[in-house]
Amino acid sequence: MKNIGNLKEFACTPDRFQGGHRLCPGCAHGMIVREVVNATEDDLVISTATGCLEVCTAIYPYTSWDVSWLHIGFENAAAGISGAEAMYKALSRKNRSYNEDKKVKFVAFGGDGGTYDIGFQSLSGATERGHDFLYVCLDNEGYMNTGGQRSSSTPIGAHTTTSPRGRVSYGEKNRKKDLTMIMAAHGCPYVATAVPGSKHWKDLAQKAAKALSTVGPTFINALSPCTTEWKFKPQDTVEIADLAVETCMFPLYEIEDGHKLTITYKPKQKLPVEEYLSRQGRFSHLFKPENSWVIEEIQKEVDRYWEYLQRKEEAGV
């Protein structure tokens, strides 16, 4: 496992994810991926589901990946990586592995559409079969590459093109699916949540290093603020991610062996959800008087969930 010391040391890592990709200016996908691939010195084999990350980092004939990388369908990043991992194991057994001394790590990246929704069956299957891989979900809470449709990750109240706000609609009506807990319920040895940016960089890098050195299926759900569809200025990406944590809209925690939960960061003083919501155009309609009850509901749910996490941590069961 790579020792994640201080940032001055980590910044000496030669980048394994290059610029020149076509993600929007300020896109959090790039920040998250850079940290994950830089969190290990082992060789990497990566599969990426269709979505902004895949489309923008492999525009023919260019590649932004300094590691072995495979483009796969929208629904089967986890199936693709399990195949690669199974083949590597089989070749190693027959002593035909391309390098014996260096460990190879297998990683899949998918958007929330490709993970919570259409790719869920392949992820659940690969996890159940117990392949040795890390799956990272880049959770921007919608199908952003195709212009911002809702997914089962879109939070209540968010405006998307398929959960539009209007005279009779306050935006998305269904609650965000709790995928991290669903992955823990698979009995994964390690699952965690994370955010990009300089404040929580170590939280993310350590979780990635830990997941990569854990044998078996591991999962990281990384919130990926999307400047284009969440409607905030590109320079605010890191601030929005930090606010998601400070308001407990997106708490940082990890779960070992399917049950042992540790909250990895506790805000000194939990901020009201308005601080997070008001910074994003996708929630602007909630600040009309007739929608104030939606914000109250969101706050109630956030408080309930935060309480639940703390109790679960204390109980250690």
């Binding site: 790039g30 940016g197 960089w201």
Partner: peptide, 29 residues
């Protein structure tokens, strides 16, 4: 002050880094 916040937050891997040794002989960017 070489905190490297910019390096870790840039989504486009833009920051040019030189590896140097600090006073205690540890490598830093």
């Amino acid at each position: 002050i070489d905190c490297d916040f910019c390096w870790v937050s840039c989504p486009d891997s833009c920051f040019l880094v030189e590896e140097v040794e600090n006073k205690r002989g540890k490598k830093q960017a």
